[in-house]
Amino acid sequence: MGRSRKGRDISGWLVVDKPAGLTSTAVVNKVRWAFNAKKAGHAGTLDPAATGVLAVALGEATKTVPFVTDALKAYRFTVRFGAATNTDDAEGEVIATSDRRPSDDEIAAALPAFVGDIEQVPPQFSAVKIDGERAYALARAGEEVEIAARPLYVESLEMVERPDADHAVLEMICGKGGYVRSIARDLGQALGCHGHVVSLRRVWAGPFEAEDGVTLDLVEELARTPALDDYLRPLEEGLADLPELRTTHDGATKLRNGNPGIVLASDVEYGDEAWASLDGEAVAVGIYKAGELHPNRVFVKG
């Protein structure tokens, strides 16, 4: 018989404005400890040097993580021209330099190539797995490996500021799996001057915005107190990109038992993914078929 996990049965989202210098895992562990929660996870890793939205899911909200991970995200970042590093950010060693500096017009002309459905090669120092090993572990061991390009959808990429000839501030909205460091690296190559990221902030991720996030200092200050629970957001916010279907008490019972349940009429089409609610509370996520929701994720009533 398995050992039961200690902690509270508490569910919801905590939006953290992650500080620089911590891994995403460290933030999740801190939040889990502060709430004394049984289960916690996050929707999208941020590099240790990056700041901004890190949405931490607790309890039943962890079942909604994929929907936030798959949602669009916005980043604001600064590119340093004239140098390439082995990590594609300021943390790494400089491996190439250039005296060339692109003009504003040259940068503007290069950006459209990075918009739409593109192919992107992740950084050597990334969490991508190669033959079962993390790329960053191989890179730290001195191995240079070939990482295959991966598809990425970029909705927009714009220069919003040019502080000086060496730097440009960009804003990007993209889908799941994007590496901002790769954008900076490839932009520098396209402009013939090299480039890397010197600062990065995730402005928003799906329904969550950095300006609404709490600091880790506040989390630590209120840890293990009821006051911290006031900052917890409903797990339903993680389903913001899916259509909501209302169900009945009988339908909710069937859905929670993993069976198809009746949902009220809506404009959701046959075969669409949606979530069912009862009195505003999420019951299940599933596939809509002819007046019923066929569940693939069921939420335990708190």
Results as ranks from 00 to 15, higher is better:
Ala149Ile: 02
Gly238Tyr: 02
Val27Pro: 00
Pro102Ile: 15
Glu161Asp: 09
Trp275Asp: 06
Ala149Pro: 10
Ile95Glu: 10
Leu232Gln: 03
Asp47Asn: 02
Leu293Val: 13
Leu245Lys: 07
Glu236Leu: 02
Gly59Ser: 02
Gln124Asp: 09
Thr225Phe: 06
Asn259Glu: 13
Arg246Thr: 15
Ala190Pro: 05
Val197Phe: 08
Ala274Leu: 02
Ala276Val: 14
Pro19Glu: 06
Thr247His: 03
Arg8Gln: 04
Pro260Asp: 06
Glu209Tyr: 06
Lys289Ile: 14
Arg162Ala: 00
Asp105Gln: 15
Thr253Tyr: 12
Gly2Phe: 11
Asn86Thr: 11
Ala265Ser: 13
Val68Thr: 02
Val203Gly: 04
Val283Ile: 15
Glu144Phe: 09
Glu209Val: 01
Arg233Ala: 08
Gly302Lys: 15
Arg32Trp: 09
Asp99Met: 11
Thr215Ser: 15
Val180Ala: 06
Ala96Val: 14
Asn296Trp: 15
Tyr288Asn: 10
Tyr153Asp: 08
Glu269Tyr: 06
Asp104Ile: 12
Trp13Asn: 00
Leu232Thr: 01
Asp267Thr: 13
Asp250Gly: 12
Ser266Gly: 13
Asn86Ser: 10
Leu187Val: 09
Phe81Asp: 07
Asn259Leu: 12
Pro234Ala: 07
Ala135Ser: 15
Gly192Lys: 03
Glu221Thr: 01
Leu72Cys: 07
Leu232Trp: 00
Trp275His: 15
Leu138Cys: 08
Tyr153Asn: 10
Phe114Met: 09
Phe208Gly: 01
Ile10Val: 02
Ala74Ile: 12
Ile262Pro: 05
Ala40Phe: 04
Ala190Leu: 06
Cys174Trp: 02
Ser199Gly: 07
Val68Gln: 01
Pro122Asp: 04
Glu236Cys: 01
Arg181Trp: 10
Asp105Met: 10
Glu273Ser: 10
Gly206Ile: 07
Gly213Gln: 02
Ala55His: 02
Pro19His: 03
Gly291Cys: 05
Ile95Gly: 09
Thr78Ser: 11
Asp186Ser: 07
Asp99Ser: 14
Thr25Met: 07
Tyr231Arg: 14
Leu222Cys: 03
Leu216Asn: 00
Gln120Phe: 03
Pro66His: 01
Ala290Arg: 15
Arg32Thr: 08
Leu14Trp: 00
Val300Trp: 10
Arg162Gly: 00
Ala184Gly: 06
Lys63Met: 00
Gly291Ile: 11
Phe125Gln: 05
Asn259Ser: 14
Asp131Val: 12
Ala205Ile: 11
Gln124Thr: 06
Tyr270Val: 14
Val27Asp: 08
Ala210Cys: 03
Ile183His: 10
Ala96His: 11
Ser4Phe: 07
Leu239Pro: 04
Arg201Phe: 06
Val145Gly: 00
Glu161Gln: 03
Arg201Gly: 03
Thr248Asn: 05
Gly44Arg: 01
Gly132Arg: 13
Thr45Glu: 06
Leu58Trp: 00
Arg201Ile: 07
